[in-house]
């Protein structure tokens, strides 16, 4: 009867995912500005501190991870707020597809547009901070799990604040305490690898945290979006 009822879950997910990715490609400044911010600030740190090789390798993982989180927080406002502003969000909520699934599609697209570029430029930052090639590989692995977890947690903060104007700082206040485990394990895993100790447990933890966040974030975000757009 109604054609929209025949759309499968997967094609609903795909449509949402493709739409958000296209939206991002057509607004490249949304993607590039946080990335340039990440590169510029990480490159500015060595000017401010002692830039000897031993010092940089010691503080490098921490700075890279802090800056990854900060530049990520900048991207969160585009996750739902753009759709809320032009009214698309109401249609997304009203659609026959389950909202948590569509939210998950948006989160995945957000990771493609914010997490993946960060991972791609991170080797350059690793070289600035005098990292070895194998350390850079470990860093990429932590960023891979970590940024996806950041997208999932950030989605909760962004969805809780869609009815608030200028909510950027508020989102940071809400999600930063919850992001601390990712920061600790992300930065320490790289640091431990540099010190020559075992790193696989840190990666295990980060992937487990990813799965854990995956289990509640789409549902919490969907509930918050529904309440927030009432």
């Amino acid at each position: 009867m109604n054609k929209s009822n025949n759309i499968s879950l997967l094609s609903g997910f795909n449509a949402m995912f493709r739409r958000d990715c296209l939206h991002c490609i057509k607004n490249p400044s949304q993607l590039l500005n946080p990335l340039i911010f990440f590169v510029m600030i990480t490159a500015a740190f060595p000017f401010a501190v002692d830039s000897s090789k031993s010092q940089l390798t010691q503080i490098g993982p921490g700075i890279i991870w802090i800056m990854a989180i900060l530049s990520y927080l900048l991207t969160l406002q585009h996750l739902y707020l753009d759709d809320a502003d032009d009214g698309c969000l109401d249609y997304i909520i009203l659609s026959p597809q389950p909202l948590p699934l569509l939210v998950l599609a948006k989160i995945c697209a957000h990771w493609i547009s914010s997490g993946l570029p960060l991972i791609i430029v991170s080797p350059i930052i690793g070289i600035i901070y005098q990292m070895q090639v194998d350390t850079i590989l470990v860093m990429i692995a932590t960023l891979f799990f970590g940024t996806f977890a950041l997208s999932l947690i950030g989605s909760i903060g962004a969805s809780l604040t869609i009815s608030i104007n200028n909510s950027n700082i508020l989102v940071s206040l809400l999600v930063l305490p919850i992001m601390i485990p990712i920061l600790i394990f992300g930065a320490r895993t790289i640091g431990l690898y540099q010190a020559g100790t075992t790193t696989i447990s840190g990666l295990y933890f980060m992937s487990a945290y990813c799965m854990f966040a995956l289990s509640f974030s789409p549902f919490a975000s969907a509930a918050a979006l529904k309440i927030g757009s009432e």
Binding site: I156, L174, P177, I178, P181, Y209, A220, A223, A224, I227
Partner: peptide, 14 residues
């Protein structure tokens, strides 16, 4: 209330 619940399930992990 949603924020509090999210915080509560994350406290053990933190």
């Amino acid at each position: 209330a949603i924020l509090i619940l999210i915080g509560a399930i994350n406290i053990p992990i933190i």
